[in-house]
C-alpha cells in the first residue's frame, strides 16, 4: 500500500510551505508594526517586558526606549531598582508622574545560558528515540518506521 502513488502528498507539502511562506512574508512586512508594539502607550498604562535602566534618582528613572533613545519617567518615590538592571515594569499614569504598579528585575543572562545548556540533553535523547524508530529515505524524502 505504501508503494502506491501518493499524488496528494506533494500537493499538501507545497500548499503548507506556500502558506507558511506567505505568513513569513506577512510578518516581514509587519515587522516595524510588531517592533513598535512594546512602546505603545495605553490610555493609563505604560509597560515594558524588559528595559535597561540607564539612570535613577529619588523621583525618576531613565530607560533605554525605542530606537535606543533614553526616556525618563517621573515617580513619586525612589524606584526599587538600580542603573544597569534589566527591568520589566507596568506603570500607571498620574498627571505628569507615573506610579510603578508592578516590576520584575531580570536575572543575569548566565541563568538563561545554563537553561540552554541543560536543553541539549532532552534534545539529544528525543532525536535518538525518533531515529531509533524511524529512518529517512532521502530518495523519496519520507520517514519509514523501522520494523
Amino acid at each position: 500500500m505504501s508503494d502506491q502513488p501518493d499524488k496528494t502528498r506533494w500537493l499538501n507539502i507545497f500548499l503548507a510551505v506556500f502558506l507558511l511562506g506567505s505568513m513569513g512574508a506577512y510578518a516581514y512586512f509587519k515587522a516595524s508594526e510588531i517592533r513598535a508594539l512594546p512602546y505603545r502607550f495605553d490610555e493609563n498604562t505604560i509597560a515594558s517586558n524588559g528595559s535597561s535602566i540607564l539612570d535613577t534618582s529619588n523621583n525618576s528613572f531613565t530607560v533605554n526606549w525605542q530606537y535606543g533613545q533614553p526616556k525618563t519617567f517621573f515617580v513619586q518615590s525612589p524606584p526599587p531598582f538600580e542603573a544597569g538592571d534589566q527591568v520589566a515594569f507596568k506603570l500607571m499614569k498620574q498627571g505628569k508622574n507615573v506610579i510603578i504598579q508592578e516590576y520584575h528585575v531580570w536575572e543575569s543572562r548566565s541563568l538563561w545560558y545554563t537553561k540552554l545548556f541543560i536543553s541539549f540533553v532532552p534534545l539529544v535523547v528525543v532525536l535518538m528515540l525518533f531515529f531509533k524508530e524511524f529512518r529517512l529515505s532521502w530518495r523519496k524524502l519520507i520517514f519509514y518506521r523501522k520494523i
Binding site: 505504501s2 499538501n12 507539502i13 503548507a16 510551505v17 502558506l19 507558511l20 519520507i142 520517514f143 519509514y144
Partner: peptide
C-alpha cells in the same frame, strides 16, 4: 501548518 507539513513526511498509513 508545520504539523500538517510534518505528517506528510511520513508513510500514508
Amino acid at each position: 501548518l508545520q504539523s500538517w507539513l510534518f505528517c506528510f513526511l511520513f508513510e500514508r498509513e
